[in-house]
Structures are given as structure tokens and as C-alpha cells.
Nucleic acid binder design. Structure first.
Lengths: 182, 182
DNA sequence: TTCGATATATGTCGTATCGATATATATCAT
DNA sequence: ATGATATATATCGATACGACATATATCGAA
């Protein structure tokens, strides 16, 4: 899903500045399955405005820099809903942790312990975030996707906790085999 | 994790041509958490060879085009293991399905039914792939990550099947509310 | 009181990566 | 023999990331 559609989705949800769109995508309601960089947001917002899919209004604030708040137009909403109609692409998933875990025997127990404990911490944090999104919003579809997230990420954390020690026990085995061969 | 490290990881596992690296990353042992495009593979392989981290040898085949098989060097292996030592970055995850599900009320029951059934099919397919990887390889760390995948994706599929109908029931509600207001 | 840290806010720029396309060889079923 | 599929390498434009620059304002600490 391209940056344009993601921005339209966020603006269909509520009006926002570029900075607020970034927050929504990396900490807010969309953070669990979306992330957009500033390097994509500002140029795309300019293009979207040029095409009449969003309009921006400057707002002066007290105690903060001015901001430009964007809202979706009728044309933008039509375009967005049209995009929703096409079958969603398969999830994109990349995990450095799984690569490191797969190569556990090439490293040390210390490295693997740090990696899995870091992951357990991140997973607990993510569960808190999703739980927060869930209680903040009684919109049925949001309740559905947050229940989904809680279920899947809960199972994820459960596995990590139950199998932490067995992964650590595999660490450094390739090195030990080398030494035994000498 | 950059393309260079991903290629070193695959070549540390077994020798491969550019085409075979692509297969490993999108259908093989690494496909569950990695994906690399040809547009990254061939230029990176050339750079890796220029830097002495891999070496390539041309092989003629019968009944197939020639291929250039790459293998990792001692320098390449040292570089790869060094990279494994740094704490793994958080998973990257993007889901068009969750965006569509969150906007279920803006579309129709037909669209949502297709989207969730497509996802259920993909999830069943992924479980088969991970199960296959698991039975093909008795390497302990591979057993660990495939058990992890089976556990998490199993929980995912379970939720989808148990909550399919409730999501479909939410579809098109925004449109119905519009009509009721007229 | 000024220094550093943090938060808000917009924007750019080099680089990495994707996705589509081109090209070529060979097999196999229609 | 024609079209589809698989193997194999490579490039190129478009897209997106990640780091940096810049500016305003608050707040606690030196």
C-alpha cells in the first residue's frame, strides 16, 4: 500500500498536519500495521493537495510552531474508497530477530539473551499500545483489529517466554563444535 | 537489515546463484521473514564480490542457461558474524488487510468476504510452507524458529476463522447509516 | 541564566530498495 | 509450432527510507 493511500486513510479518520500523520503512523491508531517516514509524508501531501484530494490550512498556535492542518476532500474520499475495493496485498514482514535466532549457534549465549529479552520487552510494549488503542475507541472495526492484534501478539509473547531458555541453550554451539574438532 | 547481510546469511547457509538467492528469500528457508528483489540481489552480489566477501564461479548446465554460483569467503563470514552481534532491529510489518478491515464499514460485505477469505487462504499456505521447512531440516535453531512461526501463525488463522463472520457483519455500515439519514 | 534536553513542526537529500521489464535458453503440453 | 512455464541474469525508473537541517518553545539543571 503506497504512501498516498495511507495518508488518505489517516485523513479520512481525522484532520492532521504532517507531523501528526507521522505520529498516527508510528505511535497512534495506525502504528500497529503502518509506518511512514517524513521523507514520504511531506512530498506526498504536496502532491495530494495539487491533485485536489486534500486541502491544507495554516494554523497559528501559542507556545508552538505554526502547523498546516490537512483534511480530505470529497474527491479524496472517493479515491480512497475506490482503493479499498481492490484485494489487499499480502502482509509485508521482515524480522532481523528471526535471522539472528536462526543463526544462534554462530553467536554467544550473551548475544542471544540480549536479543530475546529485547524482543520480549518490545512485544510487551506493543501489547500495551494495542490495548490502549482498544480502550480509546469503541468503533466496531477498530475493536475487531485490536482484538486480532492482542490475540496474535499475545500468542507471540507466550511462545517467547516459554522457549526463551531453549534458544539461549543453542547459542555458540557451532563455535564449540569447532573447538572440539581441534 | 540490509540486502548485503541477507545475502551473506543465505550464502553462509549454502552456495547459490542470484536466481537461487531469490528463491530462498521468497519461497525457501528464509521466505517466512525475508524478501529481496532481483533489483537488489544482482548489484549487491557484484559489490560483495568486488569487496572480497563472496566469490562467484560460472557453471554450465545441461538443459538450462548457465549460472554463476556464489560462495561466502572467510572475510565474508567474519563480516556476517560481526553483524549478527549487534542487537536486531524491531520487526517491520505492514498490512493492507488490517487497513481494509479497519475501514470495513466504508466498503461492502462482498469486498470484506473476499479480503478475509483471501487472507485465510494465504495463512493456510504459509503454515504449510513453515511446516515443510520444519520437516526438511533438523537444525535446532531452524526447529526453534519454525515452531515459533507455527505457533504464531496458527493463532492468527484461529482468530481469522473464529471472527470471520463478525467482521463481514460490520461491512457497509457507514453506507447504511448514510441512507438512514436521508 | 544559559545550557542541554525534549517536544513540536516542516522540509530536503542521498541512498537503498522495489517492481516491472528486457533478454535468453530450454522443456513440455496442446 | 505455439504458448506456457521454469531457469537465469540484468537494468532502470519510481518509490520510500533514514538521516540531517532548520526553527520555535518549554523546562529542568548547572
Amino acid at each position: 500500500m503506497n504512501t498516498q493511500t495511507l495518508i488518505l486513510a489517516i485523513l479520512n479518520f481525522e484532520n492532521a498536519s504532517g507531523y501528526e500523520i507521522k505520529k498516527q503512523s508510528s505511535e497512534g491508531a495506525f502504528s500497529y500495521f503502518v509506518d511512514i517516514s517524513y521523507g514520504s509524508i511531506y512530498p506526498t501531501l504536496a502532491k495530494l493537495e495539487a491533485d485536489g484530494l486534500v486541502i491544507g490550512r495554516s494554523e497559528t498556535q501559542n507556545g508552538r510552531p505554526d502547523k498546516k492542518v490537512f483534511s480530505i476532500t470529497a474527491k479524496g474520499r472517493a479515491e480512497f474508497i475506490k482503493t479499498l475495493m481492490s484485494p489487499p496485498a499480502i502482509d509485508k514482514f521482515k524480522s532481523e530477530f528471526l535471522l539472528v535466532a536462526m543463526c544462534a549457534d554462530l553467536t554467544s549465549p550473551e548475544i542471544i539473551t540480549k536479543a530475546i529479552d529485547k524482543r520480549i520487552g518490545e512485544m510487551e510494549e506493543l501489547l500495551k499500545v494495542i490495548g490502549g488503542l482498544r480502550s480509546d475507541c469503541d468503533h466496531p472495526a477498530t475493536q475487531w483489529i485490536t482484538s486480532y492484534g492482542l490475540h496474535v501478539k499475545g500468542a507471540d509473547l507466550e511462545f517467547l517466554k516459554n522457549n526463551r531458555d531453549s534458544l539461549i541453550a543453542m547459542a555458540g554451539q557451532a563455535v564449540k563444535l569447532d573447538e572440539a574438532a581441534e
